[in-house]
């Protein structure tokens, strides 16, 4: 009895239900937890956007607090550092996105080229490791190299008979170091998506290419990369949304609050944190968050639009 029932349902998988739609109850049930999560944690809190335009008074609540127009946004633009923080945020963001699109793909291709599956898996695991280390711990690892008195680098300098350097006020080093750390930490994790997509490429394509005499290099260039281009485009569009929101932990914890490094480490997030740490003004912090979200939203939709213009398949929505 039961087995028969199962069979019929699987046969009439796309039978129309009474509402005229397809009967996708099972799929819907699977999606439900995620949708609920989205609704509760992403859409309901949107009401909080109001806070950005209000002069909050806890005794009146969010809705009844007086409006204050765009005053909460002003602090972001009226500091002598405004130019620097926007420049830093955008530049680190852009470099991160470009390297984040190239390096993980290269790594994924390299991993899949390895003949021994065992070695490939081992490398993948090792590459994943940094992703799971907290930025705070990374900041101490960095300090163990760069600390003035106890760091490995200055010990080396001393042994070589050179003057020790105060790395935490050496502005030139940090842009590279921060970019490197950010890349290093996410590289293995981001490569996973590409490794999975490469595994999904039809093997007959490679076989045909090999019979036609294509070298391994040519196979990568003419088969793997074009097959990956859609997923690369999607990842790129998604990461562009984060252009204006930099990683707070990276820019706050790793440079150890060294004032001398502010010209290259102060980004919007750290600026907001330092401005409001004492004032603790939720109106102003919401304003900063909202501004970043709106800019991110515009960037995502416009880059998606541009991608769609270039190649319809590459647009996400």
């Amino acid at each position: 009895m039961k087995t028969k029932e199962v069979k019929t349902t699987s046969k009439n998988h796309r039978k129309k239900n009474s509402l005229g739609g397809y009967n996708n109850k099972a799929y819907f049930m699977m999606a439900l937890p995620g949708m609920l999560h989205g609704l509760i944690f992403c859409y309901l809190p949107l009401i909080g956007i109001l806070i950005a335009f209000k002069d909050i008074d806890y005794s009146l609540g969010i809705l009844k607090s007086p409006w204050c127009g765009l005053r909460n946004f002003k602090f972001l633009f009226s500091s002598p550092d405004t130019g620097i923080i926007f420049r830093n945020t955008l530049c680190y963001g852009a470099v991160g996105i470009i390297l984040g699109a190239i390096c993980p793909v290269a790594l994924a291709v390299a991993f899949t080229k390895l003949r021994s599956k065992c070695v490939s898996k081992a490398y993948q695991t090792i590459a994943m490791l940094p992703y799971f280390i907290s930025w705070i711990i990374v900041s101490y690892i960095v300090a163990s190299f760069f600390d003035y008195k106890f760091g490995a680098l200055n010990h080396l300098m001393k042994n070589l008979g050179r003057e020790p350097i105060d790395w935490y006020s050496e502005i030139k080093v940090w842009p590279f170091l921060l970019v490197f750390l950010n890349l290093w930490k996410g590289l293995g994790y981001n490569a996973v998506v590409y490794i999975a997509s490469i595994a999904g490429i039809d093997a007959s394509l490679y076989e045909a290419a090999a019979i036609d005499g294509a070298t391994s290099h040519q196979q990568t260039w003419y088969i793997t990369l074009p097959q990956l281009s859609n997923i690369i485009a999607i990842m790129l569009i998604m990461s562009i949304g984060g252009l204006i929101t930099s990683n707070f932990d990276l820019f706050y914890a790793v440079p150890k609050e060294s004032g001398a490094l502010f010209p290259v480490t102060n980004v919007i997030n750290t600026f907001v944190y330092r401005s409001l740490k004492i004032n603790n003004d939720i109106g102003m912090s919401s304003a900063a968050g909202l501004l970043q979200s709106v800019i991110g939203f515009i960037l995502v939709t416009s880059s998606n639009f541009i991608m769609g213009k270039i190649d319809e398949d590459k647009a996400m929505f």
Partner: peptide, 22 residues
């Protein structure tokens, strides 16, 4: 009551964080 100058107070705190330690 820093309400009227809260933008300036925030900006000065950033400047303080940059220079005071040095």
């Amino acid at each position: 009551d820093s309400e009227k100058v809260k933008i300036e107070v925030g900006a000065c705190q950033n400047v303080q964080a940059e220079f005071e330690k040095i």
